[in-house]
Design a protein around this nucleic acid. Sequence first.
DNA 1: GTCGACATGTAAATTGTTACATGATTTA
DNA 2: TAAATCATGTAACAATTTACATGTCGAC
Lengths: 181, 181
Amino acid sequence: MSKAKQPTKLDYAILGLLKDRAMSGYEIRKIFETSAMGNYSSSPGAIYPALKRLERLYLVEKTTKATSGKPGFTMTSSGRESLKRWLVEPINGEEITRRLDEILLRFAFMDSLIPKERQIIFLEDFAHHLHLILKEMKTFYRIHGNTLPLNGKLAFENGLAIHEAHFGWAKKALKALKSAI
Amino acid sequence: MSKAKQPTKLDYAILGLLKDRAMSGYEIRKIFETSAMGNYSSSPGAIYPALKRLERLYLVEKTTKATSGKPGFTMTSSGRESLKRWLVEPINGEEITRRLDEILLRFAFMDSLIPKERQIIFLEDFAHHLHLILKEMKTFYRIHGNTLPLNGKLAFENGLAIHEAHFGWAKKALKALKSAI
DNA sequence: GTCGACATGTAAATTGTTACATGATTTA
DNA sequence: TAAATCATGTAACAATTTACATGTCGAC
């Protein structure tokens, strides 16, 4: 009886990278190292064990020199399904306050995998949650803003500005998506 | 020969909470749970061991009912020094792309501990790094923007918008700090 | 022929997650 | 008095960091 474990966030991030083409462990590491791509680790001690996990779950396969040009990892069809399920998982408020970057990564990976209509629902949901959070934050700010020490107040204003920026982006992205259908 | 370990980020976040008043482990947990405060864990399995670490490093002390009203943890003077050193650690570009929230947390904790002049240097440094990153991103966008798939392009635009928002905030915060000297 | 980048991996120690256990105190 | 919240902790497990080991390949 093997326990059917869930892939980790890092596992999904790797899976997302493999959605279009095969990649070697080293190539994956370099991408995590150079591009922002969330805050996932690029250390060999994280990537190589993660690839082993994904192999054990039959979500990726190692391709040898024989099968294709260079050896590397490919996503299996069950890997693709698993990734798609992760991509469309409903957004909750907690995820927005704590793991905003994960939401953006999910959106970035959606393009060829999730129908545009579904992507629009995702973004609308994102915008909706942001709207609620912004309302709460503004109420808090109106009531307690002036009792905070200067740095606390400024840090809070930063939070407000960032959430506003996300909200503005979401509206713009929705327009772009809708006109691309 | 005991190894002189460094406190973890979570340790510093806890230390920062204790800068003004004593708090119990439970109280600390609730703050991490409810306020955004970076993305630090509020689980008992993280907080209580962290407090033990901080005690072992002589950075916090447990106060009993006898010494003060309620039992809880206080920062020692060596804890205060350690916190201050962390607060003013130089910012590097890597920290901005990967741990922006930590920079904001450091700024929020600075108020009563770090002289305003030093805080201004910190923010100017922050703005400077953001400026460089924004320049790079815009160059990349000009050259490669149209070759990206739609979602990739939009996700990149999100990154641009967020960094712009931070930059704008930093300039505003600088003004507020300067006029508060 | 050496230096740096490519490429993959492992081991130990540390940290954090999940789930449980325990008991006090408050509130409906 | 039952339920919820306060309050502290531990144990098993999972994951990551840090540091090391090893070997290839191209450039200079």
